[in-house]
């Protein structure tokens, strides 16, 4: 549990919340055009039919995921449940599912929509880093649980 790695996790989660919150804002406010800074075509991606599932903008799912990560991060740092190994494992599991879905969404952007949304790609990068950075916690949690089971 290097302190630097734990700090990086905090930072990444807050960065992810920032990006996802911006995407939610753009998705919900029809008059807001994503500020694209010349890279990619956020508008095309955000206005595509793939930008929502069951009427809910995907950005909302992203924000919920980062919110979940933050909640787990808080729970594993303070409070009565902080030493529960499963909560640490869940951070990686949640981030890992984010990575999987981001891979699929990036595939959609490249192959189906033919446009790249820089914020979506940034979010994909952040969640991938979270999964990588939290991996040692996952391994440790898995070992602790395994030891508890065979003890």
């Amino acid at each position: 549990m290097s302190g630097r790695r734990q700090q990086a996790l905090w930072l990444l989660i807050f960065a992810g919340i920032g990006v996802a919150a911006y995407l939610v804002y753009v998705a919900l406010d029809a008059s807001a055009e994503p500020y694209c800074s010349g890279v990619g075509d956020c508008h095309k991606v955000q206005s595509s039919e793939y930008a929502e599932v069951a009427g809910i903008p995907l950005a909302v799912f992203g924000l919920l995921m980062y919110g979940g990560l933050l909640a787990l991060r808080i729970a594993t740092t303070w409070g009565p449940l902080r030493s529960l190994p499963i909560l640490r494992a869940w951070i990686t599991v949640l981030a890992g599912s984010g990575v999987l879905y981001s891979v699929y969404l990036t595939y959609l952007e490249l192959e189906v929509i033919h446009a790249i949304c820089i914020y979506c790609v940034t979010s994909a990068g952040i969640v991938t880093l979270i999964a990588i950075v939290s991996w040692p916690d996952f391994t440790a949690a898995r070992r602790a649980l395994a030891a508890a089971r065979s003890a």
Binding site: Y50, Y104, V112, R142, L145, A146
Partner: peptide, 28 residues
């Protein structure tokens, strides 16, 4: 057990199901 038992594997399965459902609902 080596993978931390059902709590870990179960959450992995749930996560995969959620991702799979989202992909299925959003497939071309």
């Amino acid at each position: 057990d080596q993978w931390g038992g059902l709590p870990v594997l179960g959450s992995v399965v749930v996560a995969l199901l959620v991702v799979g459902t989202l992909i299925f609902l959003n497939r071309p």
